[in-house]
Amino acid sequence: MRSSLPVSILTLALAIPLLGCQSLLPYQRNSVESPWQSFDEAKAAFEAVEIGSTTRTDLATMGFDPYTSYNVEIVTYIDIFRQFWGVEPDQLDPGIRDCLAATVRCVGLDIQPLREFDEEYGNFWLNFFEFRTQTVLTGWQFNSTLVLVDDTVVYKLWDGNPVVRKKKEVVRPLGPLQNLDIDFRISFP
């Protein structure tokens, strides 16, 4: 009975490699919620918007309504002015020119949904004792801007990252000893 605890710890230590340690590594999910579950869904909804004909009511049915969909930002014409700083007025898109001329009747809608999955992988024991930590970040991000004057879309623009895949590897040759937070000081009397 006395040796039951060490035996169980040892059993656990031996069992972990057999159980597939990948599942014991930490992971993290981040999301900025939106009506769309993938980059393609978001892009398809955006491409359905037509300049000059799509109205605010149409946008609401497509998921671009700031009062029903999450994380749709309403921006003012001053923010739009700042975004196009440096572009000669005669080179501005006609929609943007209309927006700036309409001033307070112009609003923009910024939608930037995001999905991120940050997962640690590699050798469990090297990770556990912090000798080597490998992480891979996957996901997607879609950024879009719609500009409306009164009730009609006059300008649209999108960019983004359909496939995010970033790898990171941190190697600490001394493992847990590398993090010892000990301060050796010499004091003289």
Partner: peptide, 13 residues
């Protein structure tokens, strides 16, 4: 302007 409905999720395991 602004964001009428903000919803962000963070889940770390």
């Amino acid at each position: 302007g602004g964001i009428p409905r903000i919803h962000e999720l963070n889940d770390r395991i």
